[in-house]
Design a protein around this nucleic acid. Sequence first.
DNA 1: ACTTACTCGGACATTTGTTATCCGAGATAA
DNA 2: TTATCTCGGATAACAAATGTCCGAGTAAGT
Lengths: 184, 184
Amino acid sequence: MSGGVEWALHCCVVLTSVEEPASAARLAQLHDVSPSYLAKQLQALSRAGLVRSIQGKSGGYVLTRSPALITVLDVVEAVDGPGPAFVCTEIRQRGPMATPPQSCTAPCAISRAMAVAEAAWRDALRSVSVADLARDVGSDYGPGALAGMGKWLSAGEAPLDLRRLDRGPVQAEHKLITTAEEEE
Amino acid sequence: MSGGVEWALHCCVVLTSVEEPASAARLAQLHDVSPSYLAKQLQALSRAGLVRSIQGKSGGYVLTRSPALITVLDVVEAVDGPGPAFVCTEIRQRGPMATPPQSCTAPCAISRAMAVAEAAWRDALRSVSVADLARDVGSDYGPGALAGMGKWLSAGEAPLDLRRLDRGPVQAEHKLITTAEEEE
DNA sequence: ACTTACTCGGACATTTGTTATCCGAGATAA
DNA sequence: TTATCTCGGATAACAAATGTCCGAGTAAGT
């Protein structure tokens, strides 16, 4: 599974608590991840119609609909692709003992078992919405945690330049806690 | 998901209908797949303890236990690795708004949702055994189909050399049905 | 209305994992 | 005893994911 899924999900959760657009660069430095690559994931979300991109000086990304209507499966499919993880190669139709094609109208037993398992996986992901995730974050770390992130995102005091940010002190030496005034 | 899982599952199913060891080379040419690479998958099954390897002149692979006690999940984990597909990077502990470590004893909401989904996936795969697959094959293509493959495997008339087989006419031009007498 | 600066979007390298291959160690049958 | 067939791990070729860069476009400020 693609690792960018995690980033995209975190972004969707924090986008829950902002009304103004949040830029990719700011989201990247909030999570301390590669800005250029996070931009790629956000583009995928935009292509899937989950977020709306706003260009211009104070542009960024906004959710297109209520967080309750965006499932985790939507995000996963947007980033990792909608196709199933297991693809049947139809090797039953190959080799000396090949099954004749007229007997292969239905998928084989192996393919069926895999499909059932993936369906269960998708159902589980579909039953959780971004709103659910946001609520869990609130009950885990307190109601102010998520709001604080939204406020930090909206506090666009220092404009960000993506080109400079890429080689910045991001993830310099695994320091987990950094002061917010370092850019002043 | 690794494509070799499909090969390994097919091999386990056909191993259901043989008592004598089946060599990797013969299994490969039965399914018309790369012999060298199939050998790798069978080694993984051997390492996981699902099949037993027998060396020597008439050696090969045999299932270690009853097919009813080998689940599809066992095979998938043996080939693709037992680790979960989604790994949490703990990005909640990074960036300016990092969550303090003492608040991160339990996994985050995103990680939990993913874990639940993967558990459902694994449960579905665990509920299907190789014996179930073999039975389904019987009811799909008739009881003789699987027995025929077992018989073909045991009919070791012409010894096989893996080195020659790799550049052989395997998958030469997508011909699906080949005669069994071509090697005579 | 123009300029400017900031935004997204897609095209371009690099790294990791999968796919495929080869040759050596070991054991069995003759 | 010998020779041959077997598995097993170490070794390349390929693909996909990861990470990076610059150009097109738009909103704000002058």
